[in-house]
Nucleic acid binder design. Structure first.
Length: 453
DNA sequence: GGCGTAACGGTTGAA
DNA sequence: AATTCAACCGTTACG
């Protein structure tokens, strides 16, 4: 709390905040629509400038164009992007930002946080209340958030034991997947040519959900929900770390992708648990940092803060000697190996080549009707590829500011993962002479029970 | 009115 | 055993 007090007393930091912020304005407070503050109204109440250390930064009022439906992205200074980040995660960032004397360097994140996060806006409000002496002893706790509980209770007063009623009157469980039989019915009706809005009404499923499920089917060939919870098993085990370090000691010239290949060929790892090139570089980097702390010497080759795959993709940004070295090393490798490397470097779409989207582009409104490729390709990009390319520049820019590390390894962002303890099978879809891809489904045992009851 | 999707409050399960 | 948190979910509202 000392940092916060210090911050509040710092006259150089000033964040302009909107004049109207109460409880969550995005939520309906009661049935009277007059109590709803529209997003456009909210935006008009938002400042479009944030002033930090006397410098002004424009706050974009529109959401980032490279966000996808299921990813509320937040970009850290080291290039790490959160996926569907909760305000709690973002709050820690803004805490650090507003207490950081180097806050100007984080202006992009600050702006994005303040603009996109309700808690970020409220934090600014609390902050200003502190500046104006409305709060005692400079406390920056979330007093303003306390009254949210009442509003939340009011909004959820209809909910009983986690069950809610949607606008069509159907019971649903917040946070849980739509029952499998409804998912199948959605697809069956769509294949028959029923419009999504009609599917939504007949099945009493929100149109947003219908849209999402049909889009997922179009992209992946599956109507299964993704795997909820859990995290990816750690692959950088102590044994692997030791082996990577040993490889680097034995041959300091080795690239991360060469180390990766050697881990495979030596049987240390399999394709399933092989660390990424980034992970390998991190291991090497961590070793370098430790050596530097001990006063050890670092060769040019050790200062390898840029991933090998980025070197290949952004070779035009690399030093000439890097290019020459790359050319030499790539030339030494067999064609087959080179092909593998290229694939890993480009990070291809996780959508399998056998999925319907590769066979024919379908429209959401009618899965049987092909649409132009222009509608499809951005969907591939927001799956990850585009984000990677765009943000690598930022990553390079801030490569020395490795202040944040993700605490958990992220799971593969494939929506059609096989979850444990699920029933599974196949459903053949055939209507009016149209044949859809067989639907592979999986269903949690507990959800099956809820369907039956 | 239809549709895509951002924002939101929620659940889950490995670490 | 309890907690954390990054995945996912469906609904609602906006454009």
């Amino acid at each position: 709390m000392e940092m916060k007090t210090e911050m509040l007393m710092d006259p150089d930091i000033h964040i302009e905040i909107p004049t109207v912020i109460g409880n969550n304005p995005l939520q309906k407070l009661n049935d009277d629509s007059n109590d709803t503050i529209s997003r456009s109204n909210m935006e008009s109440n938002m400042p479009n400038v944030i002033a930090v250390h006397g410098e002004s930064y424009e706050i974009p009022l529109k959401a980032d164009s490279d966000r996808s439906a299921d990813r509320r992205k937040f970009v850290y200074t080291d290039g790490f992007e959160t996926a569907d980040a909760k305000p709690k995660v973002q709050t820690e960032v803004i805490r650090q930002l507003v207490t950081d004397s180097n806050v100007i360097n984080h202006s992009m994140e600050t702006r994005q946080f303040v603009n996109d996060s309700m808690e970020g806006r409220e934090l600014c409000e609390v902050y200003e209340r502190g500046i104006n002496g409305e709060m005692s002893d400079g406390s920056l706790e979330y007093d303003a958030l306390d009254d949210d509980d009442d509003a939340k209770k009011a909004r959820n007063r209809q909910a009983i034991a986690g069950r809610n009623i949607n606008q069509y009157g159907r019971e649903f469980t917040n946070g849980r997947p739509l029952p499998e039989h409804l998912r199948v019915e959605i697809l069956q009706m769509a294949v028959q040519g029923v419009r999504p809005c009609e599917i939504s009404r007949q099945l009493q499923v929100s149109h947003g959900c219908v849209s999402k499920i049909l889009n997922r089917y179009r992209k992946t060939g599956s109507i299964n929900p993704g795997q909820i919870g859990g995290s990816k098993p750690k692959v950088t085990t102590p044994g692997v770390v030791d082996r990577v370090k040993q490889y680097k000691i034995d041959n300091a010239q080795m690239f991360a992708w060469e180390i990766r290949d050697k881990l495979l060929s030596d049987g240390v790892c399999t394709e399933k648990n092989i660390p990424s090139i980034s992970s390998i570089n991190r291991i090497i980097r961590d070793r370098n940092i430790k050596e530097q702390a001990r006063g050890g010497h670092m060769s040019d080759d050790d200062v390898d803060l840029v991933d090998d795959d980025e070197r290949i993709i952004y070779s035009h940004l690399s030093m000439q000697q890097d290019l020459e070295k790359l050319t030499q090393r790539v030339a030494q490798k067999s064609a087959a190996t080179t092909s593998t490397i290229r694939q890993s470097a480009i990070r291809p779409s996780p959508i399998p080549s056998s999925s319907p989207i590769h066979q024919a582009s379908m429209s959401v409104a009618n899965p049987g009707i092909p649409v132009s490729s222009a509608m499809i390709h951005p969907a591939f990009n927001i799956s990850g590829n585009n984000a990677f390319f765009i943000n690598t520049g930022e990553k390079r820019k801030h490569k020395k500011e490795k202040t944040k590390r993700r605490k958990r390894p992220r799971r593969d962002p494939d929506v059609a993962q096989i979850a444990p303890n699920h029933l599974s099978g196949n459903i053949n879809v055939q209507f009016n002479g149209l044949t859809g891809s067989p639907i592979a489904y999986q269903q949690r045992q507990s959800d099956v029970h809820s369907i039956v009851s």
